[in-house]
Each structure stands twice: as C-alpha cells, then as structure tokens.
Amino acid sequence: MNADMLLIVRTARHRYAVRHADLAGMKMLADPRVLDHSGFYGQPCLAAELGPLLGHADTGALQRRQALMVPLRRRYVALLVDAIETFIEHASAVPLPALLRERLRQPWATGALVLEAQPVVLIDVRAVARSVMLAAPASPDRKGNTAYVSGA
C-alpha cells in the first residue's frame, strides 16, 4: 500500500481522514471488549471510541466496531469507529488555516482535504492515541496531569 494513503473513517456524526502509515492495522470487532482480554499481537491494547474523543455527542450505537490499531511503544491503542469508508491514494491534504491551527486545544487535527466538495479533517491518530494512553488510569506511561501531548 502507498505510504501516503489516507483512510476515510466514519464516526456516528462525522467523517475524518487518517494516515494509513500511522496504523499497525485495522480490525473488525463484533465486541470491542475482546481487546481487553486478548490484546493485539501479544501486546496489551487499550480501546477508545474516536468519535466522543473528537466531538461532543458523537457516540454511535453500533455494536460492531472497526478498530484502528495505533502502535505505541509498549502497547497498542485501538481507536474505534463506525466504519472505514474508503482508501484514498495520492490524496492531497492541506494544512488547516493558520488562524485556526494556532488556536486548537489539542494537536489532533492537522489538516483537511476536500472530498465530494466537503472538507474532511485529517486527524493525527498517533497524537490521539498518546493522549488516550496518558489519560488512562494506572497507565505505566502516565506522566503528570497532562491530558494530551503534542509532537511526533
């Protein structure tokens, strides 16, 4: 697969773009709780719904979930979405307008691409996954009270 490939994923209310290169894989889950027991490739795995992390009232009712597996140093974070809609090769995402980019509370939205005339926000899932891990109770990687981290 092309390293620049983007996935368009759907939460209950929104679509987001995600870089395929940021993922270790994708997994369809009939019940996300299975990750709590089995992990992913023998590593512990922490699951979190992507929609509520990114926007209020963006909680789906579907039981079947698609998991975006984000590799971190000692574990995986599974970001759960309703669906993976499509893959886009050679997609050209543009940075968010500077006026907006400099005011974001979390460094999660990094750009946008126009799809069917609508902008779709490009999400840095690695930054989201790090925030999920740091916010998790009893996380061995938790440092201080930081609710999110920035940078690569």
């Binding site: 006026l99 509370r105 779709v120 926000v121």
Partner: peptide, 11 residues
C-alpha cells in the same frame, strides 16, 4: 460547516 476537534467557539 465541518467542525474541527479542539477548535474554540470563535473558530
């Protein structure tokens, strides 16, 4: 419009 996660109310 497309909401942006983490954006302030003014943007």
């Amino acid at each position: 419009y497309t909401p942006v996660p983490g954006a302030p109310a003014t943007l």
